[in-house]
Amino acid sequence: MNKQQIAEILAKPYARQLLDGPEPARFAYDGLDGDPRVVPIGFWVEGDQILIATVPKAAKVAALRKNPKVALTIDTGAFPPKALLLRGTAELSTVPGVPEGYLVAGHKVMTDEQYPAWEAGVKGLYDEMVVITITLTWAKLLDFETTIPKAVEDLIKQKSAS
């Protein structure tokens, strides 16, 4: 899949709702022991990249240095479900303090009243953070209105041909 195809998917209204909304991403990577991991995590978007910030000593940091391939899903629990499926490669960089994007991502899930205390807390806690920048290599939007999983699409075609 090329960058233009990924950009077209990310520009779709349901994809934008998922990228800009309060739902966390489910972030998948291989742990150092080779077993898969999936964690819910806040994120922000810059252009065609997804960014996450974490503690420098987080297990995912060491694992991503060994194997930078990742996958993310951002979805809703409503019906019909909406899911944005993403794959990519992670690059890590250590930055001083708390990245602005981390603060924006955090604000998506709390009220304006909660935010000041949370912001002060994280700024007091983190002297530095690791920013995980994910360059996307594949994307698919399942909105169950205009797009559905390929296997379901194939089954529908098979049944309607019978």
Rank of each mutant, 00 (worst) to 15 (best):
Y115L: 14
M110A: 07
D35L: 13
V70M: 14
L86P: 07
I132E: 12
L84T: 00
P68G: 13
R16E: 12
T89G: 10
W44S: 05
P81R: 12
V95R: 01
Y14D: 10
I52S: 03
K69A: 13
A7F: 08
Q5S: 11
T111S: 15
P99C: 15
A78V: 10
A78T: 13
D75W: 01
G106Y: 04
L125F: 13
M1H: 09
E46H: 05
K66M: 07
V95M: 06
A28L: 11
A78S: 14
P80C: 05
T133G: 03
T137M: 04
S162T: 13
G34C: 01
N67R: 08
F43I: 03
L84V: 01
D33E: 08
I156P: 07
K159V: 09
A11R: 12
I50W: 01
A25I: 03
N2F: 10
T89N: 11
K69Y: 08
T73W: 10
A117L: 06
K3Y: 03
L51C: 10
K123W: 06
P80G: 04
E153C: 04
L84G: 00
M110N: 01
L142W: 15
Y126G: 02
G47I: 08
P81H: 08
Y29G: 06
L51Q: 06
P96L: 07
V70Q: 14
A15R: 03
Q5R: 10
D33C: 03
S160M: 15
S160A: 12
M1D: 07
K159Q: 08
D20Q: 15
K57R: 15
G77P: 04
H107C: 09
R26H: 01
G21P: 02
P80Y: 00
L64G: 09
W138V: 02
Q5A: 14
L155H: 05
A83N: 00
E91D: 12
D33T: 01
K57W: 13
G34E: 02
P36C: 15
M129D: 06
Q158T: 08
L18C: 09
A90H: 04
E128D: 14
D35E: 08
K12L: 15
A15P: 07
R37Q: 12
K150D: 12
T133D: 01
A120E: 09
W138L: 05
E91F: 07
W138Q: 11
L51R: 00
V45N: 03
E128Q: 15
A25K: 00
G47V: 10
L84K: 01
K157I: 07
T76R: 05
K82A: 06
R16Y: 09
L10R: 01
W118Q: 00
I74P: 03
V152M: 14
A59W: 03
V98C: 04
K123G: 00
L32M: 03
Q17D: 15
Q114C: 11
P22K: 01
I74A: 07
H107T: 04
T111F: 11
K12D: 11
S162E: 15
L64F: 10
A59S: 06
S162G: 15
K82M: 12
F27K: 11
A71K: 14
W138C: 06
V38F: 07
I41W: 05
K108L: 05
R16H: 13
M129N: 06
F144P: 04
L51H: 09
K108W: 08
